[in-house]
C-alpha cells in the first residue's frame, strides 16, 4: 500500500513539475484595431509612408519564459496601402512585391533574448517573395496592464522598428534606386497590442 502511495505521489509530482518545466508562454490575441505594420521609404527627397491593412499574428509571450515565447506574423501583401491606389498597384507588380506569385509575407521567431531596458531581440526567419532571410527585430515590450475598456482582460503592448534593405530582400531590383527615384532602405515600424484573459 505504501508503495502505491509513493508511486501515486511521484506520478503527481512528475506531472506538476513536468508541466511547469514545459509550460507554454502566455498566449495573446492580437487587437487588430490597435495594431499596425507601417513602412517608410525614400522617394528622391521625400518619404513615402504606407502600411499593411491585413495581417495576423500569433503571440505567445512571457518575459519570464522567453524560451517558450513565440511570434508568428502573416501579412497579406495585397493589403498594402500608401494612400494612392495606382502606386499600390505598382508596388504589387513584378517591379516590387509581385503579389500574384507571392501573396504572403511571414515572420516566425526562433529565439527571443532579453536585451535589457524592456527590449527583446526577436530573431527569426522572414519569408518574403518565396525566399527566407534571417531577421532580428528589436521589440520593446511596453508592459502588461488591465485593459481600461475591457473588464477581465489584460493588454500587452509591443513596438519595434527596423530598417531593411528592400534590394537585399528582392523587393524590386536596383532600377528605381539607380534612377534616384525610390530608396533601398525601408524603415518598418511594428506596433501592436494584444489581449489575454486576466
Amino acid at each position: 500500500m505504501k508503495k502505491l502511495y509513493f508511486f501515486g505521489i511521484s506520478f503527481l509530482l512528475f506531472v506538476v513539475i513536468g508541466q511547469n518545466a514545459y509550460a507554454a508562454a502566455r498566449e495573446w490575441e492580437l487587437d487588430q484595431a490597435h495594431s499596425n505594420i507601417y513602412f517608410s521609404v525614400g522617394h528622391i527627397y521625400s518619404k513615402i509612408q504606407g502600411h499593411f491593412n491585413e495581417f495576423s499574428a500569433k503571440v505567445s509571450f512571457d518575459p519570464a519564459n522567453l524560451k517558450e515565447s513565440h511570434f508568428f506574423v502573416k501579412i497579406k501583401v495585397d493589403s498594402i496601402d500608401t494612400g494612392i491606389s495606382k502606386r499600390d498597384k505598382h508596388l504589387l507588380s513584378a517591379d516590387f512585391f509581385e503579389s500574384g506569385k507571392h501573396p504572403l509575407i511571414t515572420f516566425e521567431s526562433k529565439t527571443i533574448t532579453d536585451a535589457g531596458k524592456g527590449v527583446y531581440e526577436v530573431a527569426g526567419r522572414l519569408n518574403i517573395k518565396g525566399k527566407e532571410y534571417d531577421l532580428t527585430l528589436p521589440l520593446t515590450f511596453a508592459g502588461v496592464k488591465d485593459h481600461p475598456a475591457v473588464p477581465g482582460k489584460q493588454v500587452a503592448g509591443f513596438n519595434g522598428t527596423i530598417t531593411v534593405d528592400r534590394i537585399v530582400l528582392n523587393v524590386g531590383d536596383e532600377k528605381f534606386y539607380k534612377m534616384g527615384l525610390v530608396g533601398k532602405d525601408v524603415e518598418v515600424l511594428v506596433t501592436f497590442e494584444a489581449l489575454a484573459v486576466k
Partner: peptide
Amino acid sequence: PEGMNNLPIGKKY
C-alpha cells in the same frame, strides 16, 4: 505592365 495576376479588383479600384 502591372501583371495579369495583379488585376485592379476591389473598392479601392
